[in-house]
Design a protein around this nucleic acid. Structure first.
Length: 409
DNA sequence: TCTGGGGTCCTAGGACCC
DNA sequence: TCTGGGGTCCTAGGACCC
């Protein structure tokens, strides 16, 4: 039986979820992003939950009135006509489409609908791999009916079931593997289905830009363009050895395989987290000395959030790290691996503070982040790693306290 | 007026051990 | 005394994705 893999992508997910709440915005240019202003709360306070759908369009905030940092998470298709798209800075988007309505991300609502559409899929076709809140891969191969019309019949059923459960539309691509399925799901957006077979490689895939391959980003795309390789077909025409010479063994080999539509990676239903982090970009750039109190408070809060995330999800971490971004957008990271696992906020704060001291702080900062890595399930850490080394740890904290007194953090 | 926040994976050098 | 690999862990940075 041939492998049939689907990639399903919710259409303009963040924006579509907001349109369920504010149907009066349907067809209008709406962008989701920012989040510094509590727009929903303001509207809710003024109108009440049940009246949200009747709020006059004129009362919604416009992009042109937006001041502050941030990028667009999702734009409705009406907004995309103006050239506005995800990852674009709000300020730039405001120039392109000042009349667009801007709404903040409602993460609770997004997670709710994410769970709902994913459980709808799992009931029909159980082998599902998460790819963020709004995307999944689904293995149709052994599902009854999964082979009919190359997977189109099952895709249609899933699409219909998701719409019934959520009121949201999605686009599906079905192909022999994840790589091609991902590309196929873009062929017929929104609310479309696209089925790709191995024989379609030359006609459907090869004319596309190399950047359409999942994993070829801005840097690799630019490098390929300089080598005069623009389409996937042109990429496929290269010797694997030529690509290896320019991109290294792993990437070069992979690129060549991808251009030929080959990808044997399985649909993975479960995976353990590798790291958990919290970071924040400040409203204005902060200075380590002049804004010491403010920075210190933010830093402590980030550590507490990471600790709370670990505890809530039942993990402990052995590596604690920080990330900061200077006003010129350069970023640096520092991390330190502990002798014991921890999910304790004061411990994380202490180690993160030590990391921060290893980094130059004479330049203004725009972002600060705290990260926990080398995770293990709480209660499953090896005895010798979680319970010994007490003497060492005591020496560490004594040393830390002496250092900490005369330092910034 | 630049450029969010949450991740994963890869590379490369150095330490350290066998 | 000089010169080795291989393996693993740690750290820093960067590409990429949603």
């Amino acid at each position: 039986m041939t492998r049939r893999i689907a990639h399903l992508d919710m259409d303009a997910f963040f924006a579509s979820v907001e349109l369920l709440r504010y149907p009066q915005l349907k067809g209008l240019p709406v962008v989701i992003g920012g989040g510094r202003r509590k727009i929903d709360e303001e509207l809710l306070a003024r109108h009440g939950e049940r009246a949200l759908r009747f709020i006059p369009v004129a009362e919604f905030p416009l992009l042109k009135d937006y001041v502050g940092r941030g990028v667009i998470t999702t734009a409705t298709y009406a907004a995309r006509h103006f050239g506005v798209g995800s990852a674009m800075g709000l300020m730039k988007a405001a120039k392109l489409c000042p009349q667009a309505i801007v709404l903040p991300v409602d993460f609770d609502e997004i997670r709710k609908f994410s769970r709902l559409f994913k459980s709808t899929i799992t009931e029909i076709s159980p082998l599902v791999q998460d790819r963020g809140v709004d995307e999944v891969y689904i293995d149709f191969t052994d599902v009854p009916g999964g082979q009919r019309e190359g997977g189109r019949v099952l895709a249609r059923l899933i699409q219909k079931s998701i719409f019934q459960a959520t009121g949201l539309t999605c686009s599906v691509g079905v192909a022999p593997n994840k790589l091609l399925a991902k590309m196929a799901s873009e062929f017929n957006k929104p609310n479309g289905i696209s089925v790709v077979h191995e024989a379609d490689l030359q006609t459907c895939i090869w004319p596309l830009a190399c950047r359409k391959i999942n994993g070829i980003g801005p840097k690799a795309g630019e490098k390929l363009a300089k080598l005069n390789i623009h389409t996937i077909g042109e990429l496929a025409a290269q010797d694997a050895s030529f690509l290896v010479a320019h991109f290294g063994k792993a990437t070069g080999t992979w690129m060549h395989e991808a251009a030929w539509g080959r990808d044997s990676s399985p649909v993975v239903t479960e995976s353990e987290p590798v790291s958990m982090s919290r970071e924040t970009t400040f409203e204005r750039d902060l200075h380590a000395v002049r804004d010491k109190a403010e920075l210190g408070a933010i830093f402590t809060r980030l550590c507490e959030q990471v600790a709370a995330d670990l505890q809530r999800k039942g993990y402990v971490a052995k590596t604690i790290g920080i990330k900061l971004r200077y006003d010129d957008f350069r970023s640096v990271t520092r991390d330190q691996t502990l002798e014991q696992f921890t999910a304790d906020a004061p411990t994380i704060r202490k180690i993160a503070g030590l990391c921060l001291k290893r980094v130059p702080l004479d330049q203004r900062l725009r972002l600060l982040g705290v990260r926990a890595a080398t995770l293990a399930k709480a209660g499953e850490t090896p005895f010798h790693e979680s319970n010994t080394h007490l003497a060492q740890s005591e020496r560490d904290s004594a040393a830390t306290e002496t250092i900490a007194k005369d330092q910034l953090f």
